[in-house]
Design a protein around this nucleic acid. Structure first.
Lengths: 238, 238
DNA sequence: CCAAAAGTGTTGGTCGTACACCCATGC
DNA sequence: GCATGGGTGTACGACCAACACTTTTGG
């Protein structure tokens, strides 16, 4: 990647937010930049959009170059067009959100270098910040991240929290949509919303919304994974 | 505007959806194209984004060229990047939604040529279609509109309907936020959602959400136009 | 000119659903 | 210890009814 982009034109890029839920915490994938500008800063994975590809195709290609995953959920988040967001030249960035179960992401990451890391999303009074083992905490307001990626992440987390209640994105976090327990799904909600959820209401709500309409159905057996009563497993239909 | 755009690069444009509520019906502004491609087709007003302006600035400039209005509500809707959406060359379009009270829009339109018209948004089993006096109905699925503007409009209407319940966009349709009745506001909801709304619940809901928090407050009662009991007028604070 | 009708704004009640909060039971 | 289910109170929307204030109509 050159330090200066061709002048006189607008460059179009995609940046992706890969979300997952790991150990009960909403997390997202960052890449350490190998080249200037912002060399050695953490940043969202990104890529310029080719002349002969749609933005979605560019995202798929970027994803394929990074991780051996397929059939992932993808959603356009927002397009950022501030004049000075890229010191190399005029660049607009279309941000896309991607959701992966941690199991899949972890397996894919093990085969990769250490330039990719999954950061936990934490909330406190001052706003959001990101953490990972052995890394300093990253705030999203100042210049801790490359470009305007802090703003992009804030926008993405807010969007995700706003959508999880009335869409089906929560299922995308599950490692196996053919055999999951309602507690697992509840963990996803609690991680994304960063707040405890009442089990009783959650079950009534999910079953009322999905089981009656046939979108999820109970499978035969319960699974005994740890301590406690075995959970009833459900299956996402279609 | 040339018939062919400079090859070898991606062009960036903005297209705007100017929404209003006219005579109890959600409506939006279309422009008749004077140049190819799609000459004489109805289309969303659009403009290319300059090298030295953000997308928001481009929208403001486009708006200023068309209508003498200021301080309007503006929201990025979605960015469309399909490969063949513009026959002149590779173009991506960032769609923005704008909301104007009909009073303002009407006044601005009277000074303009007939290349701009306000179309009503109608719903039926087959989906959405647009109508205006003396014009054939425009469907949004086939090629009745220029480019992919039918898809853009569908996206915008859906977004608007989804947001009106839990945001403040409804107030942007009011001609005078310093003196409006709850019935007027209800009319906005009914127009956008294209469904009748229960007056009793609507009032309880609005007053509970806004009056208690001080966002709206009662003003002096004034006798309105026409017959019927005069409405209590409210004022939007801040 | 006056009284009734019609139109619009405004308030109230009931019912069912859904959620917050708490507690009990099964494995 | 975790999963599952039940119960009570509250908030809100669907639906219904009544009342308040004004203009229009018609005798």
């Amino acid at each position: 990647m050159p330090e200066r982009l061709e002048p006189g034109r607008i460059h179009v890029a995609v940046d992706i937010l890969i979300f997952t839920v790991r150990e009960g915490r909403l997390s997202l994938l960052l890449a350490r930049r190998k080249n200037p500008p912002f060399r050695n800063y953490w940043a969202l994975p990104g890529r310029f959009v080719g002349l002969e590809e749609s933005a979605e195709a560019a995202v798929r290609k970027l994803l394929a170059e990074m991780l051996p995953v397929r059939d992932v959920y993808m959603e356009q988040l927002y397009t950022f067009t501030a004049l000075n967001r890229d010191p190399r030249g005029r660049t607009i960035s279309m941000a896309y959100m991607i959701i992966l179960p941690w199991q899949k992401l972890q397996a894919a990451l093990e085969e990769e270098d250490v330039q990719l890391r999954c950061f936990g999303v934490n909330h406190d009074a001052g706003g959001l910040y990101l953490t990972a083992e052995g890394e300093e905490a990253i705030t999203l307001t100042a210049g801790d991240l490359a470009f305007d990626h802090g703003e992009i992440i804030r926008t993405g987390v807010t969007r995700l929290q706003g959508k999880i209640d009335y869409t089906d994105v929560s299922f995308r976090f599950l490692s196996d949509t053919a055999a999951f327990s309602l507690s697992e799904l509840q963990t996803v909600f609690e991680a994304v919303l960063d707040t405890p959820v009442d089990s009783s209401n959650f079950r009534r709500s999910i079953r009322g919304r999905y089981e009656q309409s046939g979108r999820i159905e109970q499978t035969v057996q319960a699974k005994q994974q740890g301590r406690g009563r075995p959970a009833v497993l459900y299956r996402l239909v279609k």
